[in-house]
Structures are given as structure tokens and as C-alpha cells.
Design a protein around this nucleic acid. Structure first.
Lengths: 96, 96
DNA sequence: GTGGTTAATCGTTCATTGACGATAAACGAT
DNA sequence: ATCGTTTATCGTCAATGAACGATTAACCAC
């Protein structure tokens, strides 16, 4: 019941996904999560020459867009790709 | 010599394409050009409740990103999709 | 040439973004 | 309960984006 929300993505929804990916740092975060499956915020912070608050903002953007999922685990937050959303996104673009 | 610039698109380049598509109006313009093959600026203006200057800006964004091509024909400009770039873009996303 | 049509650019306004440091919140460990 | 760790949020600032009307530029027809 949780997966396969395959709504076709209207222009508004699609544009929000594009916006979420319209910054190189956020693309890199997505690619990193893709390769390592999951990690905590601090790991991502150490990958970039950016402050913790800035990375946290980028993560929030990606999470708000539904592209990633963040699970609080004690004092940390573990992030991973939302594969369903990424697939929905790719499908929409293939039709462009 | 002009087509098949199949550079793999780095994060910067990819983020610029995403940004170009991060507005619903620009997505709609792309879809429209896809369906009708080509048209002039004024035709697009009449499709939206937006001013001529605003549409012209959106077209410029898409053109700067390389997603569309504009050919001046007398007093008008004829726009069409840049299929090569769109394909390159889709290919890059499929790898995401 | 003048006038009309089309599109691009300029200048302005307001909202949003991206960055930061500082602070707050949540938790584990002692 | 306090301390240290981790992350989210707040407040600020400069830069960018989106929209508009007005203007300019380019062209065709007359």
C-alpha cells in the first residue's frame, strides 16, 4: 500500500522535482545515496565544502520533493533514496 | 558537425538543464513544441496567461540551456526542440 | 521613407534561493 | 542531571528568478 503511487506527475509536480535537482550539490547527494544505499547527514556534510546547515537544507529540499527518505535514529538521521519516486520521475521524463 | 555533442553531462551541466525545466510553464512549452514540431513565439504567448516579455524570457532560458533552438525568420522567431540535447538529457537521467 | 508586426531587451518590483553562523532540539552516555 | 554528539531550524544577507510594462530592434509592406 505504500509503494506504487504511480500518479502520472503533472507539470507542477514535475517542475518541483526538476527544481529539487537544479543544484549540483543535490545531484551529487542523490548519486552518493544511490551508490552507498544509505548514510547519515554527517557523512554527507563531510563530502562537501559546505556547512552542516547548508547540507541540511539541501537534504530538506530533496526530502520535501520526495526523492529521499530520512529516518531519525536517535540523535542522527539516516537518509536513503526513495526508489519509487525516482522511478516515477524517470518514467515521466522518458515520456517528455 | 553541430549535432552529436554527446558529452556525458557533468553535475553542473545537468543541474542547469534541471533548472531550465524547473518551471511549469517551461515544461509546457517543451511539451507543446514536442507535439507541434515548431512554432513562433507569438503562438506560444497566446497559449499562456502571461505577457509576451515573460514568455520571451522563458524561451531564452530554454534556449540558453540548449533544449530548444530559435531561428530568426524575418520579424519572427521560429522555435523547435533540440532533439539531440533532449536525448542527451534523457540518457543522463536514466543513469541517475 | 512611414507604419505595422513581431520578438528581444531593459528596468523595476517582489519573492525565492543559497549560503552562513548561531541556536535549539533530541538523544546517548556517563 | 549534565555533557557531548548530531541534526534541524532560525535569522540574516547577497544573489537570482519571475513577472510586468515600456522600449528597442528587425523586418515586411506600402
Amino acid at each position: 500500500m505504500k509503494s506504487h503511487d504511480q500518479k502520472p506527475l503533472d507539470h507542477e509536480a514535475l517542475s518541483k522535482l526538476f527544481k529539487a535537482l537544479s543544484h549540483p550539490t543535490r545531484i551529487k547527494i542523490i548519486e552518493h545515496l544511490k551508490t552507498i544505499d544509505q548514510c547519515i547527514c554527517g557523512d554527507i556534510v563531510s563530502l562537501f565544502p559546505l556547512s552542516q546547515s547548508t547540507i541540511s537544507q539541501h537534504l530538506k529540499s530533496l526530502k520535501d520533493a520526495g526523492l529521499i527518505i530520512g529516518e531519525v535514529e536517535g540523535p542522527r538521521t539516516c537518509y536513503c533514496i526513495n526508489k519509487d519516486m525516482v522511478e516515477t520521475f524517470k518514467t515521466a521524463i522518458a515520456l517528455l
